[in-house]
Design a protein around this nucleic acid. Structure first.
Length: 675
DNA sequence: GAGTCGGACTCAGAAAATTAATA
DNA sequence: ATATTAATTTTCTGAGTCCGACT
């Protein structure tokens, strides 16, 4: 957790300057809109895995189909990679290297033109008031297998205990966690024992957790794990295929006649609740979900999925086309909350809203100057609420803080901007703010930032007369803040600033820092920008427990290589004088190489050492930084795609398979696209 | 009409699974 | 070539945001 957050006061300022200049250079809307359409196309269902009724024929209509027509065909069909102003050598390499997905996507365009937009755009999923789809066919959800008792007896006060399968199941959940950190959490143990006791019954032999010995079950579990690991690869493969066969029918839906992947079709298995941070409910039993807990949402004319557990039935069937969920059940830990089954990230439905998210963030570009001017003015507003709104907006903009909704007492104690406590922000004269708080997922945010003097004074004043645990922004909550933001820009909310700042930072850094170089160097530029964004957004990961071992092994290897290098050098010197090489460290004689060969070896080894040194550095550098989250959620993929096209970087170097699938809507963006 | 709550969606890191690299 | 191990990807499900209806 020793993340040393740079204060990004300097960097930020720099970015902001850049930003304002981008604003001046707006693109015509047409260009903005030109990208997405072809990629929303999905293959029609052809494998008969879903029961498609006659009525489920595609009536898919596309929003923005009209806008698409504004873009000249020549523009749309432009081959992304072929604008060749590069030297012959690079160009040749590039054509070979550049991704197939680009080519595919530009091909798609034509097909799309012909096949997709026959119906009027009046019917579009999101144009009809809140309507998300017209037909929806799916097979419901799959349940985890029933519990299989193992019969291994735990000990109570040293003696084996008989447990019913239900009691044993819960005991096993606990036993399996014996080697986790939860064993050091009193809350976890207490919550577990309370729920387990309910199942044991009042007068059970087992009364106190301290007298329980779960080791026999734990060891049984370890043996099972080992067995599984030792299975031959054929057995493993067979098992996988069996599972896949069972799950296949649940993996896909037909949405408006288009086959789409489901995200989470597996019902969550029972287990012990593992909250993040100091969660008051950790260790509670998450009970098994049954069909009678589950509400299914499905098209009116679609067959109702068969309940996969004999003799049981769904709780409810709905036909609500204003929502995108396929099913939900109440969270057993917090029955007021729901667990939804949604489509996968690769679906067009998700793609559509993803794109809308980035369009909204781009719209903020046109307003950001005005907004900044306005809140700067309000730092000294005599109305305290206005002043708090101004400062909060400033922090959200400058530091990419989350909005910070109110939380209940039965959740982990974490904060966002609006819920910051006095003790979370320490003013250090003349104008430094020291932040230290637990944010989402109880990830610590630590940062020291230089702020404008009026902000500094405002914070000091908000703190006066309050205790450490009091709200810093006592006149504020997220709904007031967002209501205010909505007056500044249509649809503006606090989270848009995070998207905006992340994406504009990427766009800006990529365009400032890409200077020729080979492919590897360009990828490094990208990773560098990605890292910057991850730091701004405070996306952290715990350092892997093998990290230090891995580092020292890297060091060993480097030393070894250096040793080799020295040997080569002495041998070279000797070879030049016609002498044979010295014996190796192991005492064996070496092949007598000519000087040229040795020169080559030296060059190779030097390069290898340099590469390893660089790898070591990045590894250490990124040990607490999670790059993935921003890539998935904050960075407009069109920035990446366009940059790849401009610099002849295969998109696969940056996006893996899932990302490519998730971002199909962004693939045919113009190379000139800027956020 | 401010506050609360149900509801639906995005975003989050850890853990598990898979694949690639290396010995 | 095969077995470890490291890196990467995928899965899992918890934790946020934000909206709108109700009180």
């Amino acid at each position: 957790m020793a993340l040393k957050l740079q204060q990004n006061g300097y960097t930020m300022k720099d970015n902001q300057l850049k930003k304002s200049s981008t604003v001046l250079n707006k693109r015509p809307l047409g260009e903005v809109k030109s990208s997405s359409h072809s990629s929303f196309k999905k293959p029609k269902i052809g494998d008969g895995s879903l029961p498609i009724t006659g009525k489920q024929v595609s009536v898919k209509a596309e929003k923005e189909a009209d806008d698409y027509d504004h873009v000249p065909i020549s523009e749309r069909l432009k081959k992304p990679i072929s604008s060749g102003n590069k030297s012959l050598a690079t160009k040749q390499k590039a054509t070979k290297v550049v991704s197939s997905s680009f080519k595919k996507s530009s091909k798609n365009k034509k097909q799309v033109k012909k096949s997709m937009y026959s119906k009027s755009s009046k019917m579009l999923p999101s144009s009809g008031e809140g309507q998300k789809w017209t037909t929806l066919v799916h097979n419901g959800v799959i349940f985890p297998p029933p519990y299989k008792p193992h019969g291994v007896k735990m000990l109570y006060k040293g003696k084996p205990v008989d447990l019913t399968p239900e009691q044993e199941e819960v005991a096993t959940m606990y036993a399996v966690m014996l080697d986790t950190d939860y064993m050091n959490k009193a809350t976890f143990k207490e919550n577990f024992m309370n729920d387990w006791r309910k199942i044991l019954g009042k007068n059970h032999v087992i009364q106190k957790l301290e007298d329980c010995n779960f080791t026999p079950i734990y060891e049984w579990h370890q043996r099972e794990k080992e067995k599984k690991k030792q299975m031959s690869s054929e057995e493993k493969k067979a098992l996988r295929e069996e599972k896949l066969k069972q799950e296949e029918k649940y993996m896909w839906v037909s949405l408006d006649g288009v086959k789409e992947k489901v995200g989470n079709f597996r019902v969550e298995p029972p287990g012990l609740f593992r909250g993040r941070g100091e969660h008051p409910k950790m260790g509670k039993l998450k009970k098994r979900i049954r069909p009678s807990d589950i509400t299914i949402n499905i098209g009116k004319n679609a067959p109702i999925p068969e309940c996969p557990i004999a003799g049981e039935s769904w709780k409810e069937i709905r036909h609500d086309n204003t929502v995108t969920w396929l099913a939900f059940w109440n969270d057993p830990i917090n029955p007021k909350e729901f667990k939804y089954v949604f489509l996968a990230a690769s679906s067009s439905l998700k793609g559509q809203s993803d794109k809308e998210k980035y369009e909204k963030a781009r719209l903020l570009k046109d307003y950001i100057q005005g907004i900044r001017t306005a809140y700067t003015k309000d730092f000294t507003n005599k109305d305290i609420t206005r002043r708090q709104i101004a400062v909060a907006t400033y922090l959200i903009d400058k530091l990419a803080l989350r909005a910070g909704n109110e939380k209940d007492d039965d959740e982990a104690d974490t904060v966002g901007c609006c819920t910051l406590k006095v003790e979370n922000v320490e003013p250090v004269p003349p104008n430094i703010l020291k932040f230290d708080f637990l944010g989402k997922d109880s990830i610590r945010y630590q940062n020291e930032v230089e702020v404008e003097l009026p902000v500094f004074r405002a914070i000091q004043q908000f703190r006066t007369g309050k205790q450490g645990g009091d709200d810093l922004f006592d006149k504020l909550d997220t709904s007031k803040l967002n209501a205010h933001l909505k007056e500044l820009m249509p649809g503006l909310t606090a989270k848009v600033f995070r998207t905006y700042n992340a994406s504009i930072t990427l766009d800006d850094m990529l365009n400032r820092e890409t200077k020729g170089g080979d492919l590897a160097e360009k990828v490094v530029v990208y990773q560098h920008a990605n890292k910057e964004v991850a730091i701004i957004c405070n996306h952290q990961r715990t350092v892997s427990k093998s990290h230090s071992a891995q580092m020292s092994r890297l060091n060993e290897k480097i030393d070894e290589l250096k040793g080799m290098l020295d040997e080569f050098k002495t041998d070279l010197a000797r070879a030049k004088k016609g002498k044979p090489p010295l014996k190796g460290a192991d005492g064996k004689p070496k092949k007598n190489l000519n000087p040229e060969a040795l020169e080559r070896k030296i060059a190779q080894t030097t390069a290898k050492i340099e590469k390893m040194e660089r790898d070591k550095e990045t590894k250490e550098d990124l040990k607490t930084v999670a790059l993935g989250t921003s890539k998935i959620n904050y960075l407009d993929p069109r920035i990446t795609v366009a940059w790849c096209k401009r610099h002849e970087v295969p998109i696969e170097k940056i996006f893996n398979k899932s990302l490519l699938a998730k971002f199909t809507w962004a693939m045919d963006v113009e190379p000139s696209y800027r956020f």
